[in-house]
Design a protein around this nucleic acid. Structure first.
Length: 613
DNA sequence: GTAGGGTTAG
């Protein structure tokens, strides 16, 4: 009887999942033992693989099962190497490799394929190289999956050179190892080479397409990723769950809600399984496209949630200004028995920061080490500086930086600088920018913030000094750019952009907006030294921040009941923020702006951030 | 009846 049939007769094995308790597992185990089924060499392997793969908590238990098994098969031992290679304890893979050798069994291509992946996790170059030597001696160098593992291993170790050497040494490139090389090149930043490999592949399966789409998404080329996905459909290649993850990630990066919704509909129409990863990507997409309600709907609809799922939802809430809800989710997560990790705490601290919950934030910061044994990293320190600083507690923020056990990074000083700008503190702002520029001399953001602090304090010498320094150091400010999506089409506007085909209509609309806004008392911020407007452009009606132009365009093209959604590459300025609030009331429109920091939802003359910066 | 590709964060 084949092992499959045996398992079919014993559904208890198939029913093992993450909710199966250790006690139940022991019962199943006893049942198998009693019926002499664990002596079935195939079944024992299947059993350990099943329990360990479905829940890493069972790893040690399945190891002990196999230890007690008299004649473990290569299959079973390979399975253990495999599950350990994906676990936090990849070094334990070697225990089972040793058992293979001691039993006089011959390791096969599977053994090495998994073992090499364990080395990649371990990040121990010496060990990896000796495994590489061993697999060559055993004659498995030409196995495509082994090759793929080797390429990934060297990629993990950051050596594109070694990857290329392995790849170059292969005579016949199988699709599997070609895909590994492609994906590796993209991960290490050479997306052009990845595309070259992709184009040269004689046959491309779903995995190869997925890898290339993911490569574009990872390299910050979301448009290319979406284009390639459409090409994939035209070619009639089968689309599966992992295909959609980078597609959603691309929509997230672009902030294009319509296309994100389309991707969601595509998933449902094609009955793709809502796996943990896919669900998490979907939550992240809705959250970062500003539709937090939908993000939470997906979140609550999921069958299971891991730390990624919870963290994504919490991060979304924080970004959208729902700090309280973010903290509520943290307690629900704990109740659910999911342990927060360091990423979770970044979201938690940001959640506290957006609503000014300083004491709460301090409490959670302390709990990281005290309750969860997570060492705070630079990001967390940065969040704390932000938390104190935005609340106006600049001295405490400064003290916090000075008391940091590690050298403060540019981000920490940047947070302090930002807080100094908000609270118009020239003295601390000068200190913070000096420190920040010592670490990142080319940070245009620091110059802009400092210059604006000077301008607001009417220190014109300061302003011109900053400009001089920037010029002498060759630092260029990044041009502001806003994107609006209309009917699935993306429209991009830069500062003072007159290149759009509807330029004339936009100009007329801007005039109309200003006319009506002035009637309701709007005063444009006419501070003559506002940094990001060049003097000579002042006369031009379109020498406005890109989000204003995008708003005018949105008013023209989008129906009244559809919110105008804008994605901006820089932070929104105070004047534009005022402008948006007034447009939302005067024109009775909802406007959602994602800047490079967070979301602002404008409605009825107010903003979701409640002007707390 | 084991192998490749995917998610969170200044």
């Amino acid at each position: 009887m084949s092992s499959l049939k045996i398992i079919a007769k014993h559904p208890s094995i198939c029913q093992i999942d993450s909710s199966t308790t250790l006690r139940e597992l022991r019962q199943i185990h006893a049942h198998l033992l009693l019926n002499g089924l664990l002596t079935d060499p195939h079944l024992s392997g299947q059993f350990v693989a099943a329990i360990a793969l479905r829940n890493p908590d069972n790893l040690d238990y399945s190891g002990r099962v196999l230890d007690r098994c008299e004649h473990p098969t290569l299959f079973g031992l390979n399975s253990m190497i495999r599950v350990h290679s994906k676990s936090p304890t990849p070094q334990k893979s070697f225990h089972f490799y040793d058992r293979i050798l001691r039993r006089g069994l011959s390791p096969d291509n599977y053994t090495f394929s998994f073992l090499v992946r364990a080395c990649a996790q371990l990040l121990a170059r010496g060990v990896g190289e000796s495994v590489h030597g061993a697999l060559v001696r055993h004659g498995f160098e030409s196995d495509p999956h082994v090759q793929s593992g080797l390429i990934n291993m060297y990629a993990e170790m950051g050596s594109l050179e070694s990857c290329r050497r392995v790849f170059g040494g292969i005579l016949d490139h199988d699709v599997v190892c070609q895909t590994a090389m492609l994906s590796t090149s993209a991960k290490l930043g050479d997306v052009a080479f990845a595309k070259k490999l992709f184009d040269e592949m004689p046959e491309r399966d779903t995995v190869a397409w997925n890898a290339m789409i993911a490569g574009y998404a990872q390299c910050g080329e979301p448009r290319q990723a979406l284009n390639l996905f459409h090409e994939m459909q035209l070619e009639g290649v089968k689309v599966n769950e992992p295909s959609m993850v980078p597609v959603l990630s691309a929509c997230t990066q672009l902030g294009v809600l319509d296309q994100g919704r389309w991707a969601h509909a595509y998933i449902e129409k094609n009955r793709l399984r809502m796996t943990l990863t896919l669900g998490t990507a979907l939550i992240d997409m809705y959250a970062k496209c500003g539709d937090m309600d939908k993000a939470m709907e997906v979140f609550w609809g999921m069958k299971e949630r891991n730390v990624y799922t919870w963290s994504s939802a919490m991060n979304g809430l924080a970004m959208n200004g729902a700090g309280k809800e973010c903290l509520e989710l943290l307690s629900l997560m704990k109740k659910d028995g999911v342990l927060p990790n360091k990423v979770t705490f970044v979201s938690v601290l940001r959640g506290c920061s957006v609503v000014g919950l300083v004491e709460e934030g301090c409490k959670h910061f302390a709990s990281m080490t005290e309750l969860y044994g997570i060492q705070p990293e630079l990001e967390h320190y940065g969040c704390m500086v932000d938390l104190y600083g935005r609340a106006g507690r600049l001295n405490e923020a400064l003290k916090f930086i000075n008391d940091m056990p590690v050298e403060p990074h540019a981000g920490a000083w940047g947070a302090l600088l930002n807080a100094s700008k908000i609270h118009k503190n020239m003295e601390i702002g000068e200190l913070a920018s000096r420190k920040m520029l010592e670490l990142e001399a080319k940070s245009h953001g620091a110059y802009v913030l400092l210059s604006n602090i000077y301008a607001e304090n009417k220190s014109w010498e300061g302003v011109s000094h900053v400009r001089q320094v920037m010029k002498s150091r060759g630092v260029k400010k990044l041009p502001g750019c806003s994107v609006v999506e209309v009917d699935g089409e993306v429209h991009e506007f830069f500062v003072g952009d007159n290149s759009h085909q509807m330029y004339n209509e936009i100009k007329v609309m801007l005039g109309e907006i200003f006319r009506r806004l002035r009637l309701s008392g709007y005063m444009a911020d006419t501070n003559p030294v506002l940094f990001d407007i060049e003097e000579e452009e002042k006369e031009n009606a379109l020498s406005l921040h890109s989000e204003k132009i995008a708003t005018a365009f949105g008013l023209i093209r989008l129906k009244k009941d559809i919110p105008i959604r804008i994605v901006k590459n820089l932070r929104i300025c105070w004047d534009c923020h005022d402008f948006m609030k007034m447009v939302s009331r005067t024109f009775d429109r909802e406007i959602v702006v994602r800047d490079n920091n967070r979301f602002h939802h404008f409605r009825g003359g107010g903003c979701s951030c409640r002007d707390y910066w």
